[in-house]
Design a protein around this nucleic acid. Structure first.
Length: 584
DNA sequence: CGTTTTTGACCCGCGC
DNA sequence: GCGCGGGTCAAAAACG
């Protein structure tokens, strides 16, 4: 069931990463609405028909029947009017295959067309011969099919335009991010440390853990390690290649390779997934494709100083925690997850669930999901690790966010408390207006960036002009921080279509939090937050926004229409259909 | 029947 | 050394 909902949200999801569709201009287009509806196989939704129109009362429908244009008539269809049931309906035994329109729908549509045309009406009511009526129906059918064909054509054109714009956008944003990263690293990192890290990279010892690798969520490999990666880390890639994503990733790698940003030069090697010690070279891969994590996590590496070991271990354990209000058991972040454990954590009556990324064998990314002990409407999702495979747009956005947050966390020295304080300073520097949103914890066992999406906005914040919204698709990344309410503003007023699960989340959350009181702005925002976190569109949007602000993300949302992963919306139950593992 | 979830056991780090 | 808590494993159960 959840899979279905997820897929239902996909068609828009795959394009909304741009933020283009979030703009009122784009969404005001009936054509795009039509495209969305057609993709999701909603019967007759591809006509420019609004929900209000379809549910209007009989009076208004009657008033509209004077209009002769059958397209207008379709716009005014009333599926629920009682009198239509009594009319003589021809049983047309066909189905329009390409759009999944069922016989009953066409019958209804034809019937309504008939009912709304004066001459046709008389033909039916006056008992004109069935042959004439049949002829008329066939004519109507032909007209409708022609209309559908034209709409298909238009849809294709729009897709092409969107794809082209996506490419342009990606190119520009990659360039921008690269420049921002260079700037951030120049400003944020002390020069001597930077030089030291650069030296480490230059040494390129295969057994050394390159600092900052852990949370780098860039593409799986960079140019210098591409061969080894393709043979080891992503053997499953050929099975289901997200071509567009991979193409962009490759391009991105290429750009980063020439950008001089050392973070992007970090080679990914799955043999080093578990840490700097190189033990994982001999690790067996489990039947499910996981690399067992039984090795001592802090085993000494012979060639490293203790300070380096501590630093590396710290980085390896850096985490990004996302707090969000959600009734769903898990926020949908676009990735596919498999639950591998659940435990009761001390001090929290709610169990903590452990998930692994299942989008590729051996992907080291894990996440923990737990409800807040104080407020159980808050869902705390903690991400840890680094994807070693191309991601669908929604997943890439979230991954980039965690990467960016972790990069922010790790951009300072991690070998001492000063480093964490430095990171806090960085957090405020990079996110000057989001101190309530992004916090860095030095007290946790592992350095953790917390993105708090549970805060309700002030009215002033709520009135923030949309132009300041730092969305990758339009606004400057140096603009306002990605406050959740801004996202809500953007989503709510841009006409962005909600996916069914999101609507359900919103409807579910609002009454619960109101508890009988009139709905306040805070309630609305809380509900919206729940909805946002329950919907990959907004999760992705949020992630992309944060990424663009921080400038530490290494991947850009790939918005190519040819998304190879049909289930990129993930699902709250952790179930997934696409992954397959070697038989055990 | 293959895949995913559940859940008790186990491992490891850390503090005492 | 021991106990505790976090994290992971893997066999069994559940699911589709």
């Amino acid at each position: 069931m959840d899979k279905g909902l997820g897929r239902g949200a996909l068609s828009l999801n795959s394009t909304d990463q741009l933020g283009f569709l979030s703009s009122p201009t784009f969404l005001s287009s009936n054509s795009l609405k039509r495209k969305h509806s057609m993709d999701t196989n909603h019967n007759f939704d591809h006509f420019p028909m609004t929900l209000n129109n379809s549910c209007r009362g009989e009076e208004s429908a009657e008033a509209d029947r004077s209009a002769g244009d059958k397209r207008v008539i379709m716009d005014e269809m009333d599926f629920f009017s009682e009198d239509k049931k009594n009319r003589n309906e021809p049983d047309l035994n066909f189905k329009v295959p390409s759009l999944g329109i069922k016989k009953e729908d066409v019958n209804t549509g034809l019937h309504l067309l008939t009912a709304n045309t004066g001459s046709d009406q008389s033909m039916v009511d006056d008992g004109v011969s069935p042959n004439a009526q049949d002829k008329e129906n066939k004519n109507e059918l032909a007209a409708m099919q022609g209309e559908l064909g034209r709409m298909n054509e238009e849809n294709q054109k729009l897709k092409g335009m969107l794809s082209q714009m996506t490419n342009n956008f990606n190119t520009l944003q990659m360039h921008l991010i690269t420049l921002m990263q260079q700037r951030n690293q120049r400003e944020a990192s002390p020069p001597d440390r930077e030089i030291g890290e650069e030296k480490k990279h230059e040494n390129g010892s295969s057994s050394s853990m390159v600092p900052r690798q852990f949370m780098d969520l860039g593409p799986a490999a960079t140019a210098d390690t591409e061969p080894s990666h393709s043979s080891s880390g992503s053997g499953n890639r050929s099975a289901s290649p997200p071509n567009a994503a991979e193409a962009v990733s490759r391009d991105y790698r290429l750009q980063n390779t020439t950008s001089g940003s050392h973070k992007e030069l970090v080679p990914f090697d799955t043999s080093r997934l578990g840490g700097p010690e190189g033990r994982e070279y001999t690790r067996p891969v489990s039947p499910e494709g996981w690399i067992p994590n039984k090795s001592p996590k802090l085993a000494p590496a012979p060639s490293k100083s203790s300070a380096e070991q501590v630093q590396e271990a710290t980085m390896r354990k850096a985490r990004v925690s996302v707090r969000a209000r959600s009734e769903a058991p898990m926020i949908t972040d676009g990735c596919q997850w498999r639950k591998y454990g659940q435990k009761m954590a001390k001090g929290n009556p709610c169990p903590r669930a452990y998930y692994r990324c299942t989008m590729a064998t051996g992907c080291p990314v894990r996440k923990q999901v737990q409800r807040c002990a104080d407020d159980r409407t808050i869902l705390i999702t903690t991400y840890e690790g680094n994807h070693n495979h191309p991601l669908p747009p929604a997943a890439m956005a979230m991954a980039s966010t965690t990467s960016a947050a972790a990069s922010m966390l790790l951009s300072g020295s991690m070998s001492s408390t000063d480093g964490l304080m430095n990171s806090n300073f960085l957090a405020r520097t990079i996110l000057p207006c989001s101190s309530s949103m992004a916090t860095i914890s030095a007290s946790a066992p592992f350095p953790t960036v917390t993105l708090d999406l549970t805060h309700t906005p002030s009215p002033l914040q709520f009135q923030r002009p949309q132009a300041q919204f730092p969305f990758p698709g339009g606004a400057t990344p140096f603009g306002a921080p990605p406050q959740p309410q801004s996202l809500f503003n953007q989503s709510k007023f841009s006409g962005l279509q909600m996916s069914p699960d999101m609507e359900a989340a919103a409807q579910f959350a609002i009454p619960k939090q109101q508890s009988g009181t009139p709905q306040t702005l805070a309630d609305t925002v809380s509900a919206a937050t729940a909805a946002i976190t329950a919907d990959p569109n907004f999760t992705a949007a949020l992630a992309a926004a944060i990424t663009s602000i921080i400038g530490g993300g290494h991947q850009q949302p790939n918005n190519s229409s040819s998304n190879g992963n049909p289930s990129n919306s993930g699902n709250a139950n952790g179930k997934h259909g696409g992954s397959s593992f070697p038989a055990s």
